[in-house]
Design a protein around this nucleic acid. Structure first.
Lengths: 350, 350
DNA sequence: ATATATTGTGGAAACGCTTCCACGAGCTGA
DNA sequence: TCAGCTCGTGGAAGCGTTTCCACAATATAT
């Protein structure tokens, strides 16, 4: 009952090869033949069968994105870049949202399944250790985003360096007792930020108050959540007089939660505590957050581009590209950057 | 080079049918044969070819979601429900994020393409008018989410009723001069909410101050954005003394923007203006927003279930299911609901 | 005039599965 | 003992394309 290329061929009195050629814009078809085929196709509502094409062509024009916590703002924004670039390049995007690292395996297997997708975008997680070996030669091109592995292309943020900049900024404003609220150590970026924080403190000759480094223990969103930020700040506040005068917080959403906790105690940002966070989500403007801006959308776009390049040059050596977040100064660090909401609004319009 | 069922058959000294049967858990295979085949498959890293399976089985186990503005919190949350349900049911999800209604056509065509997906989830947009005719019999099962059409299954929020409840709540608190900040009229929910607002006011015998009904003119996110809310409130504030004492706002993000605008003028919520909004996003707690909670995640899940049911009963009459949002009272409406942040926090932890 | 490209076309083979039919082997019951 | 089952199995046909080869018809060069 469904219309196939054979129906079109019969009806248009041509061969199936010709019909195929018409739909593939092969130049070796006369204009009249082409018109005839197209007319019949339209009349019969013919649409090529994607899977049959895929099987014959040995490509699917589909990419998979394996992405954790995709309700998290950071990933949404990256995903948006991925999606738009896919659309622009004519690829379909299969979304595998995973809620826990343990779910990675089945999805990885699924996308590696021959013929399912042409390539994989793998977000923010370590590859299973024996991955390369287990799937030697079987696996599809894979681009790591916000993560790193020798064996494949990757794209990541220089979190260590970024944390140094963030911490350094607070130090340069005169703070000596600087704290850190970080995500769960199972997160690579969180570990890097801890490192960067320590480096910056050491370079400035400042000691680290162990109690003023609060690392999230929750695995939910790896601690990059408002709730985690809230709880961390609660904990920080038990320090009383020893509490830091400035805190580096590993994401804007955590910072927002932290600010809630402060407010409950009547404490203010930046008067009582200065804050620098990470991401620069849309709401950061609203809270006046000084933050390390991550080019999320752009990373998403670039990830797709990298994958497509890999299709074209399968044997090129793995490429690794880094992004250095940029410090966006607002008011939460205590610098009275004169910046009204509307200014930013207009700015963020685009 | 890639391993096929033939390689396995040869190596295991069985027929290809047997190999296929093993992988499809057909009971008509002896335990020994099964083991043998499985062993060889593992040794050769055999994985079935998804597209070949799809072609032979005439199904793809893949769904498409055509979704607008998917950076919007509402859609993210719905999508999350969709994604999780798909995963649970073993379906893959292809994501078509569209940025403008005009982009709908190509994506609709693409997913209708025979063999690409088994069914389609279509979000918050009107179907093209002649859609049913143009694709009579060609099209796949399609479930409308947050939208309505006679011809297919749908799932939507009773926005008219919800707006009545929201408005009624403010009226019941004694407000006579109630305003509305709404999304763009191109949005079906926005139109419904305007209606509901008018009904409620009329029922209460209250006149509507035309100037106090601000409808977004931007098409960006259909006006359901923080920026749009900010601008709308700015406009509202030009009313001076005639400004409403209570405002219904068509989304939490708009409300957040609106609150920014108020703050700039030193006005407070709920002291100067009471607010009820829609959605109940995670941040609503932070702002103490009284809001009409939409069961976003649940809608996503249910949408997938409906689609799968349709696969099983292709000829059942279209089913239409509605959700009535629930009023969540916090502080923005002026009722001093004693509710601390942590209470809510624990609650939302789930 | 003949040899040689070029162009448009038809259709077989291939892509890698599932499914169905046929068949032999081992059972059952009369 | 034999007809009639059931069970496990092999492999052909089919899913709907693309692609390649063959070939006829025309154009070009000699």
């Amino acid at each position: 009952m469904p219309i196939t290329i054979y129906d079109i061929a019969r009806e248009a009195k041509v061969g199936i090869g010709t019909v195929s050629r018409v739909f593939n814009n092969n130049p070796n078809v006369t204009i009249e033949t082409r018109k005839k085929v197209l007319a019949v196709s339209k009349r019969l509502h013919y649409v090529p069968h994607a899977y049959a094409q895929g099987l014959a062509r040995k490509r699917t024009n589909t990419l998979a994105a394996i992405i954790p916590f995709f309700t998290n703002y950071f990933f949404i924004e990256v995903l948006k870049g991925v999606q738009d670039k896919c659309a622009a390049l004519g690829y379909d995007l299969i979304l595998y949202g995973i809620n826990h690292p343990s779910e990675v395996e089945p999805y990885l297997n699924k996308s590696i399944q021959r013929g399912r997708v042409d390539g994989i975008l793998y977000f923010s997680m370590k590859l299973p250790v024996d991955f390369a070996k287990r799937f030697h030669g079987v696996t599809k091109p894979l681009v790591l985003v916000d993560s790193f592995d020798e064996s494949c292309d990757s794209l990541f943020v220089e979190n260590l360096e970024a944390a140094k900049i963030a911490t350094g900024h607070l130090i340069s404003l005169g703070h000596q007792n600087v704290g850190l609220i970080d995500g769960n150590m199972s997160s690579f970026p969180a570990r890097q930020r801890l490192e960067g924080f320590k480096h910056a403190m050491a370079e400035a000759g400042l000691g680290i108050n162990e109690k003023a480094v609060v690392i999230s223990t929750t695995t939910k969103l790896d601690g990059f959540s408002r709730d985690a930020g809230y709880l961390a700040m609660k904990e920080m506040m038990t320090l009383g007089a020893a509490m830091p005068t400035a805190i580096v917080i590993s994401s804007d959403v955590q910072a927002i939660g932290a600010i809630s906790a402060l407010r409950e105690r009547g404490m203010k940002v930046p008067e009582d505590v200065a804050i620098v966070s990470f991401d620069d989500i849309e709401l950061a403007v609203h809270f006046g957050l000084t933050t390390m801006r991550q080019p999320m959308y752009e990373m998403g776009e670039l990830a797709v581009e990298k994958l497509v390049q890999r299709f074209e040059h399968p044997d090129a050596p793995p490429s690794h590209q880094t992004f250095l977040p940029r410090l966006v100064v607002r008011t939460s660090c205590g610098m009275n950057k004169p910046e009204t909401y509307i200014e930013n609004f207009l700015h963020t319009e685009n």
